[in-house]
Design a protein around this nucleic acid. Structure first.
Lengths: 259, 259
DNA sequence: TAGTGGTCTAGACCACGGC
DNA sequence: CCGTGGTCTAGACCACTAC
């Protein structure tokens, strides 16, 4: 029965298009970022949030739930919700272009286009992209740079049907993913990537300025649209001495695990 | 105004402990699995689900939302919800022990313990596990096998405080993660893993029966508990010719991406 | 205009944990 | 016991899409 100390919060903006639960979410994130709420601190309870912001409990819950899904906090029935001691680092690994990945790491991305062609796909590509017989692909072959230094070789394949005039639209040196989303509304939301190690071929060695047989990363990636259909198939070779992969694992949903 | 054809569904069980939205979720998953609902098919609308199962719209929505989070379906405002063309493959990469990972891939896991000791951690380990000065760790050094063939070398470090009597409890050859969860209730829910390539040292080569300087995977993993505190630090070396990493990327929440 | 998903309300009951 | 999170109700309004 405290005499309503209700921390004076500026009221939410209603009807401005931003859902209330997102506004609350942002405020709570801000409190965690600024360490007003520190690691292991209890979050305000759902009811308290509801009262403080003047929303229904369900709405307050939605905000807390969203933070939970992000891994910023965790809830214990009967006890409360607490701030996870999360690194400031980024969350999960997303489907990023080389361009975006380098930017995130703080390096200046670059690329040199070796070739960009519309052509009949190899069997491996046709299978991965589930193309009909006779269907064409665009094949973009590039050397990738970070801060001006050779990082790897990428060979991307895209169904021609998805981006019919890519040849005239794509500007060499720009981000492929950027072009896809801006010009065609194509968003790659999911990908499967296999990582292997190998030795540089003579051509790899020449393009990447490394010794023949140097250890390299061999990446094969298939990217998918929201409906699960494949839209990109990439084979890459990266310098083993300059490239590093950082994976974030875990946080599984027990929901489906039962079966 | 159809004359209520309401597909006769067996009613949900109320008050049996299983939440209604999970029961609905399971039924819908079953329809997708059995291909009663095929890829790209529209899901029944939220209102229809609510009516059919006799629950409130919010509850029906919760079921659909959970399928959305899993990536089994996707929603488009104004259009509807549709079944994703998901591979039958597993979902996200979890924090798995070598043992579980090999089982999932269909191989028989094995291990040979080189050493298991309680000791003072090296600086690198102490830092990763955020140990106080003088705090001890258990260090478990193993060669890992799949179907009897050498796959890699693993060196796990655990804060001694978390599993005080590990030396007497752990059975060589069994799964470390299994032991942690069964004996101590320690569940590793998150991990950060860096993947590099390197060349086998003389010792690596001897233990893994490969040539010196053969290309190998170098993995460094820190695993975390639900509250975000580190609980395991592993350095591994895997044979480049036998090991392969499969990552599943993507499905990002646009919520936080704004900032 | 009708149907869809997205958000929101103002309550309710339950399960669980700590006191 | 009370406070917590987890679930649930029976509606509502809005934004968007398709017709």
């Amino acid at each position: 029965m405290s005499p309503l100390p209700l921390p004076h919060v500026s009221p939410l903006e209603r009807g401005n298009g931003i859902p209330l639960y997102l506004q609350i979410q942002r405020r709570l994130i801000e409190q965690i970022r600024s360490r007003t709420l520190k690691s292991s601190d209890p979050m305000p309870s759902v009811d308290e949030i509801a009262a403080r912001f003047g929303v229904s409990p369900m709405t307050a819950r939605q905000a807390v739930k969203s933070l939970c899904d992000m891994g910023l906090v965790y809830s214990r029935q009967g006890k409360g919700t607490f701030v996870s001691r999360t690194k400031v680092e980024k969350d999960f690994r997303q489907v990023l272009s080389f361009t975006d990945e380098m930017k995130m790491r703080g390096n200046a991305p670059g690329s040199r286009v070796l070739s960009l062609r519309r052509q009949t796909p190899a069997a491996e590509v046709r299978k991965a992209l589930e193309l009909r017989a006779g269907e064409k692909v665009f094949r973009l072959h590039r050397v990738r740079y970070a801060d001006g230094r050779e990082m790897g070789i990428e060979c991307s394949n895209l169904p021609a049907r998805l981006c019919p005039d890519l040849l005239s639209v794509f500007e060499p040196g720009s981000s492929l993913y950027q072009t896809l989303i801006e010009r065609y509304g194509i968003q790659l939301v999911t990908a499967t990537e296999t990582v292997e190690v190998g030795r540089a071929t003579a051509e790899d060695a020449r393009l990447l300025r490394i010794g023949r047989n140097s250890p390299v990363f061999l990446l094969t990636r298939t990217s998918f649209l929201e409906d699960g259909k494949p839209a990109e198939y990439v084979k890459s070779t990266y310098r083993g001495d300059r490239y590093k992969i950082i994976n974030r694992l875990g946080r599984f949903k027990p929901s489906i695990a039962a079966e």
